[in-house]
Measured scan of single mutants.
Amino acid sequence: VFVDDHLLEKVLELNAKGEKRLIKTWSRRSTIVPEMVGHTIAVYNGKQHVPVYITENMVGHKLGEFAP
């Protein structure tokens, strides 16, 4: 499973602090992992960042699938 390192670091850091804030990313190719559930990730679609709230059903899919 591929997840960009910088994105995973941000998610794990927020989980350690117990925070839930918006994470901006250009990494549409990253796979959604269970650690991301409950976070809102702003995924770049080529024009703007689209906020995507991550749920359990999204695990295993790519971030780009949810930012048309």
Rank of each mutant, 00 (worst) to 15 (best):
G64V: 06
Y53Q: 13
K47F: 10
G18Q: 09
N57V: 14
E9M: 15
N15H: 03
K10P: 01
V50P: 05
P68K: 12
K17W: 06
I41W: 01
K20S: 05
I23Q: 01
G64N: 06
Q48R: 13
E13R: 09
R29S: 07
V37I: 14
L22A: 07
H61E: 09
K20G: 02
V1C: 15
K62D: 04
K20D: 03
S27A: 07
E13P: 00
V33M: 09
E19L: 13
F2Q: 05
L22I: 14
S27H: 04
V52E: 01
G46C: 15
K62W: 07
E19K: 08
W26S: 08
N45C: 09
L12C: 10
V11R: 00
I32E: 00
V3L: 04
A16V: 07
G64M: 10
Y53K: 12
H49P: 04
M58Y: 11
A42D: 05
I41L: 06
F66K: 04
V52L: 10
N15M: 03
I23D: 01
K24G: 02
L12D: 04
T40Q: 09
T25L: 01
V52D: 00
I41G: 00
M58K: 12
T55D: 14
D5H: 15
D5L: 15
A67L: 06
G46D: 05
V43D: 00
K62C: 13
L22G: 03
N57E: 14
S30P: 02
G46I: 05
I32K: 00
K24Y: 15
L8C: 05
V1N: 14
S30I: 02
E9T: 14
T31Q: 11
E13M: 07
S30T: 05
N45Y: 09
T55E: 14
D4P: 03
Y53V: 10
T25W: 03
P51N: 13
P34E: 11
P51C: 10
V43M: 03
H39N: 02
K17A: 10
K24Q: 08
G18P: 02
T31C: 15
V52R: 05
H49Y: 15
A42G: 14
V11I: 13
Y53W: 09
G38H: 11
S27G: 03
V43Q: 01
L63S: 01
H61Y: 13
G18N: 10
E35D: 09
V33T: 08
V43A: 03
D5A: 15
S30G: 02
G60N: 15
H49T: 03
K47Q: 09
I54F: 01
I54N: 00
H61K: 12
L12T: 08
H39Y: 05
V52A: 05
V59P: 08
R29I: 15
E65V: 10
D5F: 15
K17P: 01
G46W: 14
H6D: 14
E65F: 12
H49W: 13
L8F: 11
